[in-house]
Amino acid sequence: MQLDLSRHVAADPDSVWAVLTDIPAAHETLSGVLAVEILTPGPYQPGFRWKETRKMFGMKAREEMMVQAAEPPHSTTIVAESGGTEYKTVFTVTPDADGSGSTLRMRFGAETAHAPAISRVVMALMGGVAEKSTRKTMEQDLADIAAEAERRAG
């Protein structure tokens, strides 16, 4: 599964970046996140890890996330692995040419190459439903990040 979404934000890249990388407050910013547990205290940088609890498909799901790359305030890559499925999310923040704000882009991919055969079969059968739900969640995340960045930029 591959998804690519973007959203205009009426805030500068630094404000968007500050919200995007404020992992301790993610459960307050992102309406889909129920809780966050920081595993590696310190700044947002490659190797920074946390557990994020979300409500997905009507159930609580808890995943360990890790920053794979960070180039403030322009891009970051976050990875996770669950049940043999590898997830990768790349966020990019691009300033508008006229200085009116930024474009926040989110590219998400899920790869089941190492998942058990049954998991790959289920993903193939349920792929459309999972993609629709994931897209809706990502769109809400982008809306939540934009709203908080705009509030902070004020």
Rank of each mutant, 00 (worst) to 15 (best):
E28G: 10
A113C: 02
P73K: 07
R135D: 13
T85S: 07
A11K: 04
H27I: 02
K55M: 07
A130F: 09
E150C: 06
T103H: 07
L34E: 15
R54D: 11
H8A: 10
E37M: 09
S31H: 11
T134M: 13
S6G: 08
H27S: 14
R7S: 12
L34R: 15
S100P: 06
G99M: 04
A80W: 00
D14V: 05
H74W: 08
F48Y: 15
L20R: 04
V129A: 10
L142S: 05
K55H: 06
A25Y: 02
K88M: 12
I145V: 14
D98P: 01
P13A: 00
P95Y: 00
E64R: 09
W17A: 03
E148G: 00
G47N: 08
D22L: 01
S15E: 01
L3F: 11
A35Y: 08
L3S: 05
M1S: 14
P24M: 00
V36W: 12
E64F: 11
R135E: 15
A130D: 03
L142R: 12
K136T: 09
R135T: 15
K51S: 09
G128Y: 03
A70K: 10
L3N: 11
I145M: 09
T94K: 10
T76E: 14
A35H: 15
M106W: 10
G101M: 08
V79L: 06
E64I: 10
T112I: 07
S100G: 08
K60D: 14
T53K: 15
I145E: 04
L34A: 15
Q68N: 06
H27P: 06
A113E: 07
Q140N: 13
F57H: 04
T77D: 08
E28Q: 15
F57D: 09
V67P: 05
M126G: 11
L5E: 13
I78Y: 00
G83S: 06
F48T: 12
T94Q: 10
V36K: 12
L30T: 12
S100A: 09
R54I: 07
I23A: 04
H74M: 10
G101V: 11
S82H: 12
A26M: 15
D14M: 05
K132P: 04
A11Y: 01
A146G: 09
V16P: 04
T76I: 07
R62N: 07
D12Y: 00
P41E: 14
G154P: 07
V9P: 01
E148L: 00
G32E: 14
A26I: 05
A124C: 05
D14C: 03
L125R: 14
V16Y: 01
R135L: 12
D12Q: 13
A97E: 08
S75E: 11
E64S: 09
I145P: 01
R62S: 13
L30E: 09
P95L: 02
G127D: 11
E131I: 12
A10M: 05
A61G: 02
V33H: 14
